[in-house]
Design a protein around this nucleic acid. Structure first.
Lengths: 182, 182
DNA sequence: CGCACATATGTGCATGGTCCTCTATATGCA
DNA sequence: TGCATATAGAGGACCATGCACATATGTGCG
C-alpha cells in the first residue's frame, strides 16, 4: 500500500540500490515497517515506470551490477502529497488478540502460556528498542535536520511506549485470570 | 491469514450466516479485526470445502435465503490446534509512523497538524472503547464462561491501554517539537 | 576441496485481501 | 413517486505480499 511512499521517503534522503534499501528497511525503519526483497525490486520498477524514480547503473568489478535509484522531482512531489494527505488508518488487526478472544476453549494454564509467550516476545522487542543509540543532538549527521532527528527519536519512543503498555496490560491480564482460576 | 480461524472461533460460539458474521465482526471483534463481506463468503465456502464447517439452508419468506454455517468436529479440532500453535507475530506496520518518520520534509506546522489529526482519531477510538458496557459478572449470558468473560474484558482493556499510551505519546511528541520549533 | 555466506537482481506462483458490481425483495422516508 | 437502506449472497478485477527459485561471482572457513 504505502511501501511506495516509504521507499520514496528513504530514497529522498539518499539514492540507493534495492539491495541497500532492503538493509535500511530492515534496520532503520524495521520497527514499524518491513518489506520483502522481491517486493522492493518490484516497487522500484513500478516507481521508475511511473516516472517517480530513475534507475542508474553502476558496473562493479567482481560483483553484480548495482542499480541505484534516485527520486525524481515528480517523485518528491508525490512524496509531499502523500505526507500531507489525510491518513486513513488501516483497520487494526491483531492475531494475538484474536487468539486470546477465543482462548476460553483452552484450559486456563494454556491461556496463561499464551500470555507468557507474548510477554517474552514483547520484552525482547523492548530490549531491542532500548538498545538503539542516537548520536548526541549537537553532532547531527549531515542532511539530518533537528526536526528530522526529533521525529526519529519520537518514532523509537512510540515503540517504547507501546511495548511498555503491552507488558503492563499482560501483567494486569495475568492477575485478572489468577483471580478467577487460581 | 487467520480470518479462517477468527471465523471458526465466532462460529464455534453460535452458528451464523455470512451476513450475520459480518455484523459480529464489525461489532464485537471490530477493535482488533475486520473483514470484507465477499471475503467472508469466500472463506466460508473454503471452510465447507475443507470439511471444517457445514452449510445449512433456511428459506425465508420475503427475504433472501439464509445459509447458517456450523463448525464441524474437524473445525473445532482445527480451531484448538490454531489456538495452541506458536504465534508468529506478523511484522508491525504503522503507516502513521512511516509518515511521521519522513515528515521533516514538511513545514513544522504541518507536522503538528499530523499529530493533531492522529490525536483526534485515537481519542474517538478511545471513547468508543470506553462506551462498551459489559453485563454484570454475576449475570453471565448463557454459553459464556467466567474465563471467556474475563478474556473479552481483557481484549477491550488492551484497546484502552494502547489508545491511552498513544495519546500520551502524542502529547510528549508535541512538547518535543515545541521545544525545537517554538 | 567443498560448503556456507555475502553481493545484487530478478521471475513465477499462490494466497489473501479489497473494491466494485450484480441479483432480488421489503421497508421506510420525504 | 422515487430513493435509500436492510437483508443475503456471490463473481470478477485487481493488488500487495511472501515464498521459492534462478543467476553469477567472490570470500572465508575448516
Amino acid at each position: 500500500m504505502s511501501l511506495r511512499h516509504a521507499i520514496l521517503g528513504i530514497l529522498s534522503v539518499k539514492p540507493m540500490s534495492g539491495y541497500e534499501l532492503k538493509k535500511v528497511v530492515d534496520g532503520s525503519v524495521g520497527h514499524f515497517w518491513t518489506a520483502d526483497r522481491s517486493q522492493i525490486y518490484r516497487t522500484l520498477s513500478a516507481l521508475v515506470e511511473e516516472g517517480l524514480a530513475s534507475r542508474g547503473t553502476v558496473v562493479q568489478e567482481g560483483r553484480p551490477t548495482l542499480h541505484p535509484h534516485t527520486v525524481t522531482d515528480a517523485g518528491l512531489a508525490e512524496l509531499d502529497r502523500w505526507l500531507a494527505s489525510p491518513l486513513q488508518a488501516p483497520p487494526t488487526r491483531d492475531a494475538f488478540l484474536a487468539r486470546l478472544f477465543f482462548a476460553d476453549r483452552l484450559p486456563p494454564e494454556r491461556v496463561r502460556a499464551l500470555l507468557d509467550a507474548r510477554h517474552r516476545e514483547v520484552a525482547e522487542e523492548l530490549a531491542e528498542l532500548e538498545a538503539i543509540e542516537f548520536p548526541p543532538r549537537d553532532a547531527l549527521p549531515e542532511g539530518v535536520t533537528e526536526l528530522g532527528y526529533a521525529l526519529r527519536e519520537a518514532a523509537r519512543d512510540h515503540g517504547l511506549a507501546h511495548a511498555r503498555a503491552e507488558l503492563a496490560w499482560i501483567d494486569a491480564t495475568r492477575r485478572r485470570l489468577e483471580r478467577i482460576t487460581p
